[in-house]
Amino acid sequence: MTEPIVRMAEVGKSFGATRVLDNVDLSVGRGEVVTIIGPSGSGKTTLLRCINALETYDSGSIRIDGVEVGFRDGDSRRRPRRDRELAQIRAATGMVFQLFYLFPHLTAVENVMLGLRKVRRMGRAEARERAMRWLERVGLADRAGNLPSQLSGGQQQRVGIARAVAMEPKMLLLDEITSALDPELVGEVLAVVRSLAADGMTMLVVTHEMAFAREVSDRVAFMDGGRVIQEGDPESVLRRPASERLRAFLSRIG
């Protein structure tokens, strides 16, 4: 594996008495596509949210390019980071959500421009130009002026992807981005992800689309009960499950 962009070591988190992440070790190398599969409640989404600092972790370490995400570096007392530092760290990763979460008061192009203007501090013309380039890339240049409510689910999600990649993040976090879509709209979104992968975009993907996982992933990790149970190249994980739990999961999901 190349030098990792994100390195997670013994990450643990509990919601009350429930242990949602239990000593998770996982790394994603530059240009790598890693897919996390597993039953719902296994901690996949929580792990992504921890990497993007939308959630805190109780123990262990998550580093993006060597920078600890949730806590200040060089401080043994694990003091949480300030809002401004967190914003900077979040801007280094792009997140795409299951339910899109586009900003409904902004047009498609304005959705993509917001971060470029406010976080990357680009001028209006430059931000619009880059936003349009990415909308074109996801096939929505002709919808730039539409509000999210005027777009289909698949189109909204493609704007969501454009919003994330336009920031030129070090890696993309995709959280079940096709789960809320009608089956006939899944293909157009996966096509965009496939082309990003071909361009060498680093991605950590949570998905239930097994065929897609097999096709685009360099590695697949199976999570259950807050732990990574098995990890490896797609063929070995999906074709030769080493544990009963993974076998049961794969047969359930078909």
């Binding site: 939308l54 401004r84 997140m95 959500f97 586009l102 900003f103 917001l114 976080v119 919003r163 920031m167």
Partner: peptide
């Protein structure tokens, strides 16, 4: 969450 994920401050 989406606004924060983009990197906006509070």
């Amino acid at each position: 969450e989406a606004a924060r994920a983009v990197g906006l401050t509070f």
